[in-house]
Design a protein around this nucleic acid. Structure first.
Lengths: 165, 165
DNA sequence: GGCATATGGTTTTATAATGCAACCACACAA
DNA sequence: TTGTGTGGTTGCATTATAAAACCATATGCC
């Protein structure tokens, strides 16, 4: 079998994300959905993509629990696609991609938009990664460790998992 | 001409990022490069991908200024691939993808690793988006605005559009 | 030097994804 | 009932991805 390798069973969380939204259109659809779009035609118009692909992507995003189909909303008996919490949760990914372009793009003058704080109308800061004690971290300050086994019943920081799990 | 639509000339910074690294392998290569890998064979082994594709991706990443080829380093006259500052700058994107999986994946128990602060060994916080005055922002607190014209010499916020436009 | 083998790819060939255009089904309006 | 807009699906051409085979140069060993 020769197909686009899937990372669904992979242990790396990055690979798992990419398996769901790493296809070039999904994130743009999510971007537009965050912006407020809901209808098939709206996405198709705004993104200018082929309808069959949009159709396939929307279905995949629904399957992945990123979008949900809502029965109507504005009266007419058509379908809408709305973000689930998981879909909304992709916002930082979009911000990270945006800021990467803003900082490193070869032709930054071609970038047409900026992300601002709604209250003040001023550009947002760069995304910040912090330690639990609040220290600002950059990549060399971090480390990838194997995940500790989830403790079940236990002593110190007691978990609330039911005994049956 | 029917090819994978490119967003190179697009005004959206997210689309521009995806044009460079939105293909499913590039980010994994960057991840491994951040982790320290440099050689063709190392990438091939770790990622288990076909060599021709790895070859194509590495070349594309070099073309995009994300990787650079270093002449040697450990003596042997082979080539190495090292991250440029632009490549290192993709770190927040990887963190965002990782945290999205950690928070929303359907089978979180399959995720094998966590990102920790090297000093204390404790998990990092979620990425934070802040306004310039430090207020923590979530998506509804933000807005995408057209980029103001870059002022060249000039006074307050005067536009620099030429009279001919 | 000569031979084996590892490294770092390219070529070949097959399959899957993408893109466009045409078509279709249903809702709604006149 | 005919028309039109919305929301898709189907067919076909093109491109990207994948696996495996092949190849060129380096290096290790005798």
């Amino acid at each position: 079998m020769v197909k686009r390798t899937s990372f669904e069973g992979d242990a790396c969380p990055i690979a798992r994300s990419l398996d769901a939204i790493g296809d070039g259109w999904s994130l743009l659809i999510i971007r537009e959905a965050l912006f407020g779009l809901r209808r098939f035609g709206e996405f198709q118009n705004k993104l200018g993509m082929a309808k069959n692909i949009l159709s396939a992507r929307l279905r995949a995003l629904v399957d992945h629990g990123i979008l949900a189909t809502a029965p109507a909303s504005d009266g007419s008996a058509y379908q809408e696609y709305v973000l689930t919490p998981k879909g909304h949760g992709a916002f930082p990914i979009l911000v990270a991609l945006r800021q990467w372009s803003e900082e490193f793009d070869d032709r930054p003058s071609e970038i047409a938009t900026i992300l601002v704080d709604k209250d003040k109308g001023r550009p947002v800061r760069k995304l910040e990664l912090r330690a639990q004690d609040g220290r600002l971290l950059s990549q060399p300050d971090t480390l990838v460790k194997p995940r500790p086994a989830p403790r079940r019943r236990s002593t110190t920081a007691r978990s609330n998992l039911s005994p049956s799990s």
